[in-house]
Design a protein around this nucleic acid. Structure first.
Lengths: 248, 248
DNA sequence: AATACACAATTGGTTATACCACCTTGTAAA
DNA sequence: TTTACAAGGTGGTATAACCAATTGTGTATT
């Protein structure tokens, strides 16, 4: 639970307050002074947390009035679809595996060094810290860039936006990633080694393995938290999404 | 001009510093205390500004070390990148081939009937007519929908936006499609038949063939219209982009 | 000369307090 | 009822001080 920086935890706490439904869009949430006392932190920290949320477009700060929850849909940019974490992961499996295979033929030594840096960074980062997530993003983005194709980079950016800007997806992802960062580091390592050997098939296989396991973890997580009724649904999902591996 | 809140102004100023090139990605920018003095504001404001930039992903804050400029990743979101027709086609080859393979296991009879309709429509349409292009879009979009994955649909929509909204891409594409609509109909037919047989590998292969040929056509076209100097470039491209087929 | 280690300087992180400008609201005056 | 204004609340900013992590440096050791 312990984040490095206090304002991050506070920001997440406020985000939880919002997403729990206690403060619907348009609502004004408690003042800085009250929140500071409630969380047992200084007012500055609350401010920093709220400013970071403002920067991402989750809240609107009105001077002299208060901070208000913003409608998550009107956050600007083109509307992202209401995809589920399963769908996003399946799509990433399809797309990023092929990117990895292609990158194996185009990647430079410098870019491999960059990958290595992100893997190390991730290994040293505390679980679910922002640094770890940033390293994760950098890793996948670097591979897209290594393909030397701007369209691939843009596609991956779009995929990552879904991961970070769709509340439901973000929640599930961070819940799962929290407890398998070890797997993640190992799998990133495997992909990197395949790229270092310039082996397209191995790179594709490693990336598919990475996302297959993530998919399984997601399904397991959803299974645990679901009750009987949800279990049937999850079973259907498993059959359907794991079918992705056909003919790989 | 001037923002109401000071930290907005400072954030903009820091952003300008970054974008002016004075601080390339990876660089460490001046400490909070120095910036505070330089801008004539308190250290708190500088912190707030940097935190807002961190939230948007423009900088990375390392405790005890400093704040570092992050490789611009999630900057705008709206703007389409300046991709070339080659890049777009390569990305479509990667992505849509895998979509086709997945769709082979999930497609319904109704959806196959829909595909058949688009193929017929395309065969009857006069060359490069708007109907033909619409049928083309419908064909590819139907396959994405057949995967039952909203994320795939959204990705394909994004790809199609590049094809239609980027002037350079649109021009080259329509120039090429004008004279090979026969090929296109046949290839769409092949993909459809593979899907009808629920054969993932055949579907993938057919779709790859479709885009491989399109890629060749694009390269040929660019070769014809180019003069000697351009020929070398085109040759490099051919080697580079056709390498996509490795291990398919 | 090269290496290991301890220490000090630097940097971001946090607290506390105080004051300002602005918004909201309720009340008193018209 | 409507208007005007005063009071209290809210975010915005400044200052000073201290904490914890990082980094660089200089000394001692090999």
């Amino acid at each position: 639970m312990s984040e490095k920086r206090l304002y991050h935890t506070v920001a997440r706490a406020i985000l939880d307050m919002i997403e729990s439904g206690s403060y619907p869009p348009g609502t004004r949430l408690p003042g800085e002074r009250e929140l500071a006392e409630r969380f047992g932190v200084s007012r500055v920290v609350v401010r920093e947390a709220e400013i970071s949320l403002e920067a991402v477009g989750r809240v609107e700060i009105k001077v002299g009035s208060g901070v208000y929850v913003r409608d998550s849909l009107a956050s600007g940019g083109l509307a992202l679809p209401g995809v589920t974490p399963f769908e996003l992961t399946q799509t990433r499996l399809l797309f990023e595996s092929e990117c990895a295979a292609l990158a194996a033929t185009t990647i430079t030594d410098d870019q491999i060094a960059g990958l290595e840096a992100t893997v190390k960074k991730m290994a040293n980062a505390s679980h679910d810290s922002p640094d770890g997530e940033a390293a994760d993003q950098d890793f996948h983005m670097l591979i897209a860039k290594a393909t030397g194709n701007e369209a691939n980079v843009f596609m991956l950016q779009t995929l990552w936006r879904m991961r970070t800007e769709i509340a439901a997806v973000k929640r599930v992802y961070s819940a799962v990633c929290h407890k398998d960062s070890d797997h993640r580091v190992n799998e990133h390592s495997e992909v990197m080694e395949a790229l270092r050997r310039r082996d397209p098939d191995a790179a594709r296989a490693a990336m598919r393995g990475h996302f297959s396991r993530l998919l399984s973890a997601l399904l397991d997580a959803s299974e645990q938290q679901a009750i009987e009724d949800a279990k049937r649904k999850s079973h259907e999902n498993r059959e359907r999404y794991l079918r992705t591996n056909i003919g790989a």
